[in-house]
Amino acid sequence: MQKLLEIRDLDLTLDKERILQNINLDVNHGEVLAVIGPNGCGKSSLAYTIMGLKGYEQNGGGIFFKGKEISELSVTERAKKGITLAWQEPARFEGVSVREFLSIGAKAKGRNIDNKDLDWALNEVAIIPNKYLDRNVDDTLSGGERKRIELASILLMKPDLVILDEPDSGVDVVALNNIGDVINDFKNEQMGVILITHSDEMLEVADKAALICGGEIFNVGNPQEVSDYFKYQCIPCEDEDFEKHQGVSSNE
């Protein structure tokens, strides 16, 4: 069967610094790939490169989505093909209601969203619809609430591949369970998921995991084994770049 996403020999250099090197990864329909690794190892950069964000243009290798090379495509084009990204720190939108925000992705794909859809999506992320629909997606919502609303918008958008950058950071334990359920929803819809995470609970929904160290894939395999390796056996890399990365905690 055709793979949903194939990343081949991907390199990314930013500010003359090698951020990602020789990345090879696959994601199938209905499969959750967890990406783990220390702070500053390049997890978010990988997410941004797949999404095609400005400033994250790859320097080598290929990204194939449903068999087609997409590295020349803009963010919008990639989204229209069925890729989306949930940021670790969701943006705030002054004057944009939750109702409007939730419909954006579906509308861009030419699908209309009705009240029933909105209620369903918010209930899925454990947000009470009639309390939130008319509020704005601004800083009156907590970071955790905005994260869950972002997930709801993705449920409505129905992409084929969703990249979740630390969906578990800054949310409480109850919400954590709920995010696991939402990821299972994505799976059931045959969507592929790239799940960047630091949490063991989240790993339970993953089918496989990749450990990134200093911008390189260290190993790929069973989520628990890869995570255990990372926790108990991973010796700090010799790579001097990596030692520098270890000091970086800006993403925490």
Binding site: M51, L53, K54, S74, V75, T76, R78, A79, K80, I83, T84, L85, W87, P90, A91, R92, F93, E94, G95, V96, I104, G105, A108, K109, N136, S153, M157
Partner: peptide
């Protein structure tokens, strides 16, 4: 904000209009 909306399929112009109207 722009990139978030573009990752939902809006082009840059549509995204910036939505942000400004908001």
């Amino acid at each position: 904000q722009l990139q978030t909306l573009m990752a939902r399929g809006l082009d840059e112009e549509e995204a910036s209009d939505l942000i400004i109207q908001g």
